[in-house]
Amino acid sequence: MTTENNTNLLKRGAYVFLSLAVLTILEFFIATGRVAASIPLMALIMIGKAALVVQYYMHLGKTLQMDAAEAHE
């Protein structure tokens, strides 16, 4: 892995964090602001947040991809 690659990874981590922060605040305002259909909306947001962490912080996709790549070797 090159250093440049890793700088990108740091940047991506920051973007993911920003998205998570925005979504969390959004969630909070949906809950406190009498928005219609608030529960389905919040449910969608929390699933989206979890997907972001699982994909970009926990590298689930990458792990499965590496596994699949080996199977074809």
Partner: peptide
């Protein structure tokens, strides 16, 4: 207290962010 909840959520979220940075740093 929903605001307190938001506070601790933020703390945990930031910790995830720094944990990710730690992992990238050691890979570097």
């Amino acid at each position: 207290n929903q605001t307190l909840g938001l506070g601790i959520t933020t703390i945990l979220l930031i910790s995830s962010f720094t944990a990710n940075r730690a992992e990238v740093r050691i890979a570097q």
